[in-house]
Every structure is written in C-alpha cells, then in structure tokens.
Design a binder for these strands. Structure first.
Lengths: 214, 214, 214, 214
DNA sequence: AATGAATGAGTCTTCATTCAT
DNA sequence: AATGAATGAAGACTCATTCAT
C-alpha cells in the first residue's frame, strides 16, 4: 500500500461511515418525531404528513427510512418496550436472599418505572394506549417478556425459601405485571403527582408481600 | 271524551307504543351486530357498511338510530362495561364479616368474571382491545367505577377489622382491578382453557390475601 | 293474491327495475366518458378525476360502478373490441360462392370498418393506441378472434374452389387482419379523408385477390 | 508553439478523446440497459432506479447522460427502429428485374426480419409494445419510413413491367408493411417456433404475389 | 464526473355521512 | 321509516428530478 492509498482508504471509509451515521441519526430523528406524534394524536389519527411536518422534511424522505406507516409504528413500539425493559434490567433476579432484600428490590423497580414514566411519558402512552392499534401481538409478547422476567425473581425467592412455597409462580408473576402496569396506566391517565407514586409503591409492595389480610 | 275517542285513544297509544318498542328492538339489534363486528374486525377496520350488511339493512337506516360511528361505538362500549359490571353487582360489599368469607366472596367474583368472559368474549374484547380506539376516557371511567366498587369491599374489611388496618384502600383497590383485568386480558389473548381460570383464581386470591411472603 | 297485492307487486318490481335501469344508464355514461378520456389523454395520463369531472360527478361515485381504473379500462377496451366485431358480424362467411362475390363482400367489410372508424374513432384509438397499456393479452385475444373469423371466409372459398387450393388459410387470415388494421391505424393517425378510404379498399382488395404480380 | 506545448496538446487531445470515448461507451451501456428494462417491465412500470440498479450506478449519473426518462426512451426506441431498418437495408430496391427475382428478394427480407426478431426480441418488443407509451409519433414516422422504402421496390417492379401496372403503389406498400409487422407481432406474442416463420414467409409471399384467388 | 439523499406533485382509493325518493 | 346513491375529504404512497457533496 502506497502512502497515497493509505491516506485515501481511511478517508473513503470515513466518508461512507459519516453517511451511514447521518442516515442512522436521521432515522432516529424520525423515530423520535413519530413517537411524539403517535403519543399525542394516536396511531390512526396521526398521518405521515404530521411526522414529516414536525421535522420539516418532505413526505418522500420519510419513505427513504421506513417502508410504511405500520413499519415505523412497529419500530416505535418496539423501542418503547425496550426502553421500559431497560429500566428493569438493572436488577438481578437472583440478588435477593431475604424477603426484606426482595421487598427493597421491588421498591426500586417500581420507583424506576415511575421515574421512566416521568422521563418518557410517550413510551408508556405508546405501550398503554397505542400498542393495540399498532400491533396487538407485540403488546402481548412484551407482557410475556415482563412476566417471564418477574417469574425469575419469584423463583429465586421460592428456591431460597423466603417466599411462599406453594406459590403458582407463573400466574403470580403475570398478576404482578398487571398490577404494576395498572399503576403506570393510571399515573399517565391522571397525570399523577410524584406523591401518588409513593402511595402506589407502598400500597403495591404491601399488597404484594403481605396481602390484604389483617 | 266520546266513546269513539275512548276507543281510539288507547288504540293509538298502543300503536305508538308498539312502534317505539319496535324501534327499541331494532336499536338493540344494531347494537348487537355492532358489538360482534367491532369485536371481530376492530373499531377502525369495521365500517358502517359491515354492520348494515350483517343485519341486511341499508346504510341510511343505521343513521336513524345512531348519530355516527363514534356514537354507536361509545354505546357498544358502555354496554360492554355494564354487562361486566352486572356480573359483579351480585355481591354485597358489606356482606363479609371474616377474612374467610371475603376470600370466598372474592373467589366467586373472579369466577363470575371468567364465566362472563366465556359467555361474552366480545364484551371483554371491546373492553380490552377496542376501548382505546373508541374512547380512552370511557375506559378510564369504567376502571374508576370498578375500583370504586372494590374499595367498598376493602373498606368493609378494614372497618370490621378483618383486613389490614394500615391499608391504602384506594390504591389497593386500583391495584386489584389491574390484577383481575390482567387475568381476563390474558384469558382472551391466549384463549385460555377453563383449567387456567382456576389457577388464576387460586393464585390471585393467594396473592391478594396472603402476599408472596413465605 | 288480493287486488291490493296485485297492484303493489308490479309497482315494487317497477321501482326496482327503474333503479337498476338508472344504474345501468349511469354505468354506461361513465363507460362513455372513460372511452373519450382514455382516447384523448391515454390510459396512463388519464385520471379517475378526469372521468369524474367530465361527467360532473364525485370521485367516489365512480367507485360505486367500477372496482378501479384497470377495471373500467378493461371494460372500455372490451366494448371497443365488441363494437368493431359487430361491424363485421353482418357478413356471412359462407355466403360467397364465387371470387367476385367474395371480392364484393370484402369490399363491404372494409367499407364498414372505415365507416365505423368515422363514427367511433375512439373505439379504434382504444384498440390501436391504448390497448397495450391496458391489457396486452386482450389485444392479442381480439386479433385472434378477428383472424379466426377471417379464416372462415377463406375456408369457404377454398372448399368451394374459388380460392387458391394450396393456401395456408390460418396464416393468410392473420396476415389479412394485419393488413386491414394497418389501414385503420393509418386512417386514424393521419386523420384520413374519405377519399383515402377508397384507395385503401381498392388497393387492399387488389392486393388480397390478385397480388402484386403483373 | 513551444516543444512543451507541442507535446502537451496532442496528449490533452488524446485524454479528451479518451474521456469522450468513455462517456460514449457509458451512454451506450445505459441505452442497452434501458432497452432491456423497458422491454421487460414496460415503459411506465420501469423506473430510472431500475436502469441505474441494473448497471450498478447512481440515479444521478443517469441524468448526466440523458435529460429525462422520456429522452432515453425516445433514443431507445429510435435505436430499435434503426436496428430493424438496418436488416432491410441490405437489399437494393432496384436490383430485381423479374417477378421471380423480386419474390426471392422478398423472401430474403422477411427471413432477415424473423432472424432479427430472434436475435433482438427486445427491439421488436419496443417497437410493437412500448412504442405507443413512449412516442406515438415516432412509431408512425418509422412505419412511414418502412412503407416509403417498400414503395421503392414496388415502383421498380411497375417501371420494369413485372408488377401490376395499375397498382396503387403507395397504399399497397403501406398494406404490405402492416402485413409483415403483424407477422412479427404474432411471432413475439406467441413466442413462435422457427417453423412458424417459414409458414409466414411462404403464406405472406404467396398472398403478396398471387393473392388469394384460385 | 459520480453520487444518492431529499423532495413534493400527483394518483388512486376508502368510507363516514347526507338526502332525495 | 327505510333506503342506497352520491359525495369529497383525507391519506398513503410512488417516482422523476434536483443538487450539495
């Protein structure tokens, strides 16, 4: 390789890289705009034109990055599900060894859910309100993933003996997911204050660990 | 009043009554058809034409009974919510005096939910899948009603001393509604077998009354 | 049947008939307009909007009568092919018994083609210019039909002995169709005068019956 | 002119020549690709993108060589017409002195048409199927050229006395062109076997020289 | 000279709603 | 009271063409 070639090669590669990076950035921009638009207007009421206008780009540009409306919607939804999943991923399902540790872990998980809800309300709006219009299957799959993850925590507790031994781990995990999501659903619907979070976390943890019995 | 009038008046009134009854019956027919269609095709995919065709009536006739698509959808949804509410109404929130009685009552309530789900899957489909497309507000209102009703059961237990005294009754009721609806949501989505119901009822009751702690 | 029913029944049937007749008339109107538009602007340049505007009806009305653009185009083309075929159908393939009779018959056929071309130039424009854009297959099928029909005349002549005995009837028929259609093609393209028709008919008949040899 | 300039000038001119040659070669490549694409997909269905992709060049590059889609289509069509014309140009319109010589000449011409059709089916597809979408006028002009050329052969025969003296040379030439093109049209449409060629040539020549009379 | 990202005019098609019969 | 023909707003999507790099 001559010095000239040595200089050219990286340059060319950088140019191509830059282009790819730009394209990816633009794709991300459109995805963001779409998430906003879908969250505000809803999947069906939102038009491709709305997304394009939001970004000040032409309609056609949109179609350079996404095949069609359904395509971007699915990607937006998937991203929202991933963002939420990421908030849960910090916790290790096998970390707790006592009820109190697990109780504390649960508090943290619920808290990060509410934090995320504050930071990215659109992500939850997508999940709660738009997902059905976009792809019913995707919603179900994501709930499956969340409950599967929750199951691991419960299994850990049962194995280590600090949770009820006769627990139907699978169903209980599903029920707990329902419980948590109802919390976030209401928080969005009612535009809940931070104080309400605390009540949900405390009441939720109390219900989950102690039940309603006196 | 002449004898002639005396005869006519009741006759006329009966004719009007019959007409009104007929109209009401037709309205109900259309509502039924719409519920089926919405449940099968979804709110947005379903057209007025589908409903009219299902009944063998003209499109125009539809508009003699309902103002527009949104109108009938709202009524269909409201009806579905009422049908589900009716299944709960059999139980008296103040009936239980011991934990075991309430536990039994809760079992019955959950069981009737699953029975209703078997009898009227469209009602639940409407609630779970279509409601968001039709009227987000209505869904929230209905959840509000369900949780308000559940609250009464909890309050009764707290007052009578057989439920946890420090319970956040409002939030706990909301959480329990979320839990139950997740159960029905999954039952519909997965077309669950009767056996799964039992697991849900048992695991749900266990979680609710005893919590997960060992 | 009571007298009342007797009166009603026909009346009802007439009302339905009238509606069907109106629909058919409208369908025909749209078909006519489409033929004009397609002939003037060409299949691809013509829009549904052009057809609707031509008739002063809404775009949507068009779709009550035809499934889509391709649908009406196919029907327009089929109609044009039928109109041209009708002009030929007057002649009986087995009528001639001598060369002179057949020669006269051929003259008449060619003449009616030119007459039709004068009366319905759009029909020929459709066939010659638009057909390929609409449905290549349809054009080929129609040529097949025309040459099949021509074949019958030639067979008749060969059987009766007044036409060349060693003739390849099939191919010759195809060639003659090509010859005639080139005549009409040019007549349209050049907006030919009536005098040109006569030259085509005479030269065509001479070529067909006597060939070019001296 | 300094010696240096003397050396540079020719070098520059050669470089420019090479560049021009390269440009011409590229132009030809694009033209070839376009001919293939138009023949396969049709003028309207084919996109500039298809042509660019076929060659692995950018869309923009296309526009350095052709003004627009219509432009290249016209050139492709013109080239096809020229290619077909070239196949005819081998024959001298004044070469024949007897009917038999002309008959033989005609056979050769028809044969070379079928040979060309075998070698360059796209050229004929362009002419028969795409030309109308591209430029109706061009098609007519080319037919004009073909018939003008045919006319020369006929005139030669009439002058030399071996063809019918009362022939309408102009119209007859046009009719013969129609006859031949119908042959090639069918050959393409039906993907005709080589055997069919012979039948067309024989039947065509027989019809042309002897007519159908017995 | 080559590229390909950006553009937006243009088109078909759907469907809720109205209204004359 | 019932009908269904007519309507046109609305929206997704394509593709020839331009132009900055």
């Amino acid at each position: 390789m001559t010095p000239v070639e040595a200089e050219k090669a990286p340059a060319a590669s950088t140019a191509a890289d830059r282009r790819a990076a730009r394209a990816e950035a633009r794709r991300e921009e459109i995805l963001d705009a779409a998430q906003r638009i879908f969250a505000v207007k809803g999947y069906h009421e939102a038009g491709i034109a709305d997304i394009a206008t939001e970004l000040g780009i032409g309609h056609g540009t949109f179609y350079r990055y996404f095949a069609n409306k359904q395509d971007i919607a699915a990607q937006v939804l998937e991203r929202a599900i991933m963002q939420i999943a990421a908030a849960l991923a910090d916790e290790d399902p096998t970390a707790s060894s006592t009820v109190d540790e697990y109780r504390e872990q649960t508090r943290r998980i619920m808290f990060s859910m509410f934090e995320l809800l504050d930071a990215r309300p659109e992500a939850f709006n997508l999940l709660h309100v738009q997902s059905l219009a976009i792809d019913v299957e995707a919603l179900h799959t994501s709930f499956e993933a969340y409950s599967g993850y929750t199951e691991k925590f419960l299994e850990n507790g049962v194995e280590k003996g600090f949770l009820r031994q006769d627990m139907d781990v699978e169903i209980t995990a599903q029920a707990l997911v329902g419980l948590i999501f109802e919390g976030t659903r209401r928080a969005i619907a009612e535009d809940a204050a931070r104080e309400t979070w605390t009540r949900w976390i405390e009441a939720g943890v109390a219900l989950m660990f102690d039940g309603v019995s006196g």
